[in-house]
């Protein structure tokens, strides 16, 4: 299983700079917001964490469609399916999700504080937004795996994945933004939404791979 993780991370890093594109997209989305709402620093500071979350959410959906499609095209997916008896398929999917997250989403979390500076988010808010992204984005990847598995047989599933996944990831967005705002705005609490966010990630870590494995087995 660790071998699978290593291979997937290595592929993610080596092939075609998918992580770079994701980070670039994140950067572009965040940089475009002020052109729309104006360069008022107070306003930007207020909406900053939300913008970071939405940007990260959209950017982390980018590479998802390839999660299983690439494996299907070169036949690796058949091997994973046949090996079900040795390595439970849901576990393989879980490991693939983790690897995808490490190679493509973790860089987004890493640049989030930097982008927060552009939005004039105060240091505590930066730390909170980064922490919530670190805890919350795996949930998006796990739900995304279900979408990716559902459209694996479709030739142009990329956009469909986003359309399928966005409504499902709304809870993650709500509690992620709530927690990061709670750290800055005084009356709002930080811990309760943060714990709910953690729970969501753990919940989807179980549901996501299981549902994705089911979808993959019925793909053809």
């Amino acid at each position: 299983m660790f071998a699978l993780y290593l291979r997937e991370v290595r592929l993610g890093v080596r092939a075609g700079g998918g992580a770079l594109t994701g980070v670039l997209f994140f950067l572009a989305v965040v940089a475009v917001i002020p052109f729309g709402v104006g360069p008022d620093l107070d306003l930007l500071a207020r909406i900053g964490p939300a913008v970071l979350w939405i940007g990260a959410l959209l950017a982390s959906l980018l590479g998802l469609e390839r999660l299983f499609q690439a494996d299907r095209e070169d036949g690796s997916l058949d091997m994973l399916l046949i090996a079900d008896g040795r390595h439970m398929l849901a576990l393989s999917v879980f490991v693939k999700c983790l690897a995808h997250w490490t190679a493509n989403v973790l860089p987004l979390v890493a640049v989030a504080p930097l982008l927060g500076l552009f939005m004039n988010v105060p240091p505590v808010g930066l730390a909170a937004a980064t922490l919530t992204l670190l805890i919350g984005t795996p949930a998006i990847t796990f739900i995304g795996a279900v979408g990716a598995a559902l459209v694996v047989a479709l030739p142009r599933g990329g956009l469909l994945v986003s359309v399928l996944i966005l409504p499902l990831s709304i809870p993650v967005l709500i509690f992620g933004v709530a927690a990061s705002r709670g750290a800055v705005a005084e009356p709002d609490p930080f811990l309760p939404p943060f714990l709910i966010l953690t729970a969501l990630t753990l919940f989807f870590a179980v549901i996501g791979p299981a549902a994705a494995a089911l979808a993959l087995r019925n793909a053809d």
Partner: peptide, 9 residues
């Protein structure tokens, strides 16, 4: 960054 991403892709 866009040019770099394109040359790598």
């Amino acid at each position: 960054l866009g040019v770099i991403a394109l040359t790598r892709a």
